[in-house]
Design a protein around this nucleic acid. Structure first.
Lengths: 226, 226
DNA sequence: CTAGGCTAAAAAATCGATATTTGTCCGTCA
DNA sequence: TGACGGACAAATATCGATTTTTTAGCCTAG
C-alpha cells in the first residue's frame, strides 16, 4: 500500500529511503497503530533490511510528527487525539490558505495546466480504491499550492496533509470519503484557481477542509479516541 | 558554544542527542558554513563519536531544514539566500502571530510569571556575550508562545526561530543585535502580554520582527549572498 | 501485604568493518 | 582536440556484533 506519491520503485534509492517511504505509509494508513511501540528488530525483519536504515528512517519521521522518539527507549508512532486533529485542521487551513494565495499570485500557464492535469488524474482514479486514488489526491492538493515560491511553507503543508489524512484512514473510511461529494468541492477549487480568483479559491478550499473536518470529527470521537 | 536552551549536559543523554545538539549549534552559529559538505568521518572525529549517531543526528536536522540530504551523496548544511530569509521572516510572523494570540487567550497566572521570569533572565544576560544571551533570548520568545495549546505550531515556531537566528550569526553580528534597542521592543511585547492585550502584543511582536528583518536584510545582501 | 532492590531478559544504542556508490584522474580512441 | 570509458580513491551506506540501558519479574525485608 503506497499512499504517498513520487516514491515508487522497490529497489531504487537507498535502503533508508525505502524504509522511510514504507514506514510512512504504514503509519499513515494505520497498518501501524497510534502509540504503537516500534521495535527496531521487528521492523528490521519485516522490511528485510538492517537496523541502521530503520533507525534513520524513524529519525526522519520523528520530525514529520508521525513518530515520537523516547530517548534511550526507542520509538513509537504518534498518538492521536481530537485535540491533535483539531490543531492539524486549523494549521492546515491557515497555511494552505497562505500558500494558495501565493500560488495564485504567481499563476502561470504552466501551473494552470499542471493543476488541471492533476485534477483529471485524480478524477480518473476515483473508483479504483485508495491505493490508486490517495496519491493522486495528494498530488492534486499539492499542485494547487506548488506555485507558491515557499519551500518551507510547502513542506509544512505536505506534512500536515499526511497527518490529516492519517485520521481518515484511522477512521477506516477511505471509501466513504470518496463517496461524499468531494468531487464537486475539488472541481470548484480548481475552477476558481484557473480563473485566478484567489479570494474565491481560498474560500472554497477552506470550506472543503471545514466539511472534511466536520465529516471526520464525528467518526474520530467515537472510533479512535474512544 | 551552546546556543540552544534546555540541552546542556556533556555526558547525559544518548550520543545521538549530543551530536544533534552540537551539530545544530555549529550550523546555527555558522561554525559550519552554508552549503558546506558534511563528511561523516570528519564529524565523527570532531565530535568523538561513532558514525551512527552522527548520521542519525543529521537525519533529524534534515527535517529541521538545517541540513540537506543528497541521497547516496551524503549531507550538507542548508544553503542561504535572501529569498529563504524573507520566507522565514514571513512565516515566522504569521505563525508566531497565531501562536501568541492563542497563548494570550489561554493566559494564566503561571504563564504570566513564566514570561516575566524569562524576560528578566534574558535582560540579566545582556552584556555577557552570545553564549549566555542567545539561549535565554530563545527561551523568552518561546515562553511567550508556550501557552498556546498547539504542539505542532510551537514546533514550527521553534524551527523557524533557529532558521532565523542563523542569519543573524551568519551576518556576524550577535553583538550589534544586542546594541540595537531591542530591549525596548521586548519589554513592550512583554508588557502587552501581561496586560493580556492580544492585539497590542501581536502588533508589537510583528513590529519587532519587521525591524529585525530590515536590520538584517541589508547585511545579508552584502555579506552572505554576495 | 507492600516497598525496595536485585537479577535476568529484552531492547536500544553504538561501534567497527564491509560493501556500494560516487567522484576523479588518466589514457585511449575517434 | 575532445569525449568516452575504465580504474583508482574517497566517501557513503549498510550490515553484524557488542555494549549499554531499560524493563519486568521475583525475592526479601520491613
Amino acid at each position: 500500500m503506497n499512499i504517498i506519491p513520487q516514491d515508487i520503485d522497490p529497489t531504487e534509492g537507498s535502503a533508508t529511503h525505502r524504509a522511510y517511504v514504507a514506514l510512512r505509509n504504514m503509519i499513515v494508513t494505520g497498518a501501524l497503530k497510534p502509540g504503537e511501540k516500534l521495535k527496531i528488530d521487528g521492523l528490521r525483519k519485516r522490511l528485510d533490511t538492517g537496523a541502521s536504515p530503520i533507525r534513520e528512517a524513524l529519525s526522519l519521521l520523528t520530525s514529520d510528527n508521525l513518530v515520537e522518539r523516547l530517548d534511550q527507549r526507542g520509538f513509537r508512532t504518534a498518538e492521536v487525539s481530537t485535540a491533535n486533529f483539531q490543531e492539524i485542521l486549523l494549521l492546515r487551513s491557515t497555511l494552505e490558505n497562505l500558500a494558495l494565495r501565493e500560488s495564485i499570485e504567481n499563476a502561470t500557464d504552466a501551473w494552470e495546466e499542471s493543476i488541471v492535469l492533476a485534477h483529471h488524474r485524480m478524477q480518473r482514479a476515483k473508483g479504483q480504491g485508495a491505493d490508486m486514488f490517495e496519491p493522486l489526491h495528494k498530488d492534486f492538493h499539492m499542485a494547487l499550492l506548488a506555485n507558491a515560491r515557499s519551500p518551507i511553507l510547502l513542506k509544512f503543508c505536505s506534512q500536515l496533509y499526511d497527518l490529516n489524512i492519517r485520521y481518515r484512514f484511522l477512521a477506516g473510511n477511505a471509501l466513504n470519503y470518496q463517496k461524499r461529494d468531494v468531487g464537486e468541492e475539488h472541481a470548484s477549487v480548481l475552477e476558481a484557481c484557473v480563473a485566478r480568483d484567489a479570494e474565491r479559491a481560498s474560500e472554497r478550499l477552506l470550506l472543503h477542509y471545514a466539511l472534511t473536518g466536520e465529516f471526520l470529527a464525528g467518526l474520530i470521537g467515537t472510533e479512535i479516541v474512544a
